[in-house]
Amino acid sequence: MNEIILFEKFFWFGFAALGFGILFNAPPRTLFAIWLGGAIGGILKIILLYYNKDAIVLASFTGAIAVGILSIPIAHYRHVPPMIFAIPSVIPLIPGVFAYRTTLGFIKLTGAIGADYNTILAETMNNGLKTLFILMSLAVGVAIPMHVMRKESAKNIRLIKK
């Protein structure tokens, strides 16, 4: 894998997250954390995809879990609820192109039934299900660390036992 391209992607994943942090009016003291979180989650997905091209759902899920775990120390360090950091940071993992292709497929499916109708149907189904499952895995991945710890507030969670 080309390290320079990997570094470039790291960089841009961060900016994709940062833009949404600004759009959602995140507190200024969390912006750098959001940039870093988006970059780490994204790059984890890219690395996993490099080893297994088909496991896009699993790769996105791993990225989201990483963001979810990171959100707890950042909640301590920056005194914010974990979701403030987690929501903008997982947004770069959202499957935009799959969603676009699904929409495009649906539009084509409303046309006349031609020779390639079955191919389009299969592709649309494939893209649509990928979109749905990636979205679900992002939401679950972010929420998992809080649920595993079985605490209602991140303030009571210590990752390292004292």
Partner: peptide
């Protein structure tokens, strides 16, 4: 206050461009 409008526009556009690169 929210962030200044120009900063929001600029950074969200930058994030759109990053999405484009990543895809």
């Amino acid at each position: 206050p929210h962030y200044p409008r120009l900063i929001i526009l600029f950074l969200v556009s930058l994030s759109g461009a990053s999405f484009c690169y990543l895809f």
